[in-house]
């Protein structure tokens, strides 16, 4: 099955996306990628471009290769074929620290060292900005405190990470990734474990960072309505391929959701944000 791409258009400008009034430049892209583990190929052939200054959201069913794609973009896995480029140069040709100053990652699952405190964990995000001779600077201090304030974990600073609730811990990891202060940030399911209020709070924070700090964010989200509301650029994947990409308002249709998730649904305008809103048709409720 080779699903046709529904749209390759650049995200359309609307009042929510001041950064896309002209064709976006691309700092990070993958070309002719074949990704997999050992003999197992997950993504046979993939081209992906992350518009600079965008809040790109990747959606798709479990196991379709979203994390695999993110991991290849930040050189955690080496593509079996094809290349990842950062600013036009192959990412593997840069020194490790240079990339780490440009590109950060929040992995889907991470384990904190035993007994580490929240403050210590968030501080470790500053590693790429430090060296043997420059151990801890006022900038590091500001970055760490700002990140902790922004994610609402400042009052947990002295607590041990392994004694936090799942949602608190998730916000600590986000704080760690934010403290790295990279212009490009990959987030693998940043809102898992969070209650609805914290999900929205975090997504609003990402939008703020995207619009006002000019950060390019690439996030995997499972909630399509959140994706539609916050993404400036949406990438829908299925079975290791990109099925559709573009502005959510253009690409999210009932057909697309059916094609990607195999889920019959209704797409309406979100009464608050006027972005597409996906309403699944459960079997029971079907007319």
């Amino acid at each position: 099955m080779t699903p046709a791409r529904l749209s390759l258009a650049q995200p359309v400008p609307d009042e929510a996306t001041p950064y896309h009034t002209e064709p976006a430049t691309v700092r990070l892209r993958g070309q002719h990628l074949r990704l997999g583990y050992g003999d197992r190929v997950i993504c046979p052939q993939l081209d992906v471009r992350i518009p600079d200054g965008s809040f790109t959201v990747i959606v798709g069913p479990n196991g379709c290769g979203k994390s695999t794609l993110l991991r290849s973009l930040c050189r955690l896995i080496t593509p079996q074929a094809g290349q990842v480029y950062l600013d036009g140069k192959q990412i593997r040709d840069y020194p490790a620290r240079t990339v780490a100053q440009q590109l950060g990652l929040l992995p889907q699952s991470a384990t904190a060292p035993d007994g580490i405190s929240v403050l210590d964990l968030v501080s470790r995000g500053r590693y790429p900005h430090q060296s043997l001779l420059r151990q801890w600077s006022p900038q590091d201090e500001i970055a760490v405190q700002t990140a902790m304030q922004a994610t609402g974990v400042a009052d947990l600073a002295g607590r041990a990470v392994d004694e936090l609730s799942g949602g608190q811990r998730q916000r600590v990891w986000v704080a760690m990734a934010l403290a790295q202060e990279t212009p490009l940030l990959l987030l693998d399911e940043p809102t898992t474990y969070l209650d609805i209020a914290h999900q929205i709070e975090l997504l609003e924070l990402f939008r703020h960072l995207n619009r006002h700090n000019g950060r390019t964010l690439i996030a995997v989200l499972h909630d399509l309505n959140h994706a539609c509301r916050y993404a400036t650029h949406l990438i829908a994947m299925r079975e290791g391929r990109i099925v559709a990409e573009g502005a959510p308002g253009k690409v999210v249709t009932a057909d697309m959701v059916q094609q990607v998730f195999g889920l019959p649904c209704l797409v309406m305008a979100d009464p608050v944000s006027h972005t597409p809103m996906v309403i699944p048709r459960g079997k029971v409720h079907m007319a």
Binding site: C74, R75, A96, A100, Q101, P107, A110, A112, P113, R124
Partner: peptide, 18 residues
Amino acid sequence: RPLNVLGMGEDLAVSLGS
């Protein structure tokens, strides 16, 4: 210092530039 970062797991260690 490098061991500190490695303690966060190999994925994060790499993405933090070690």
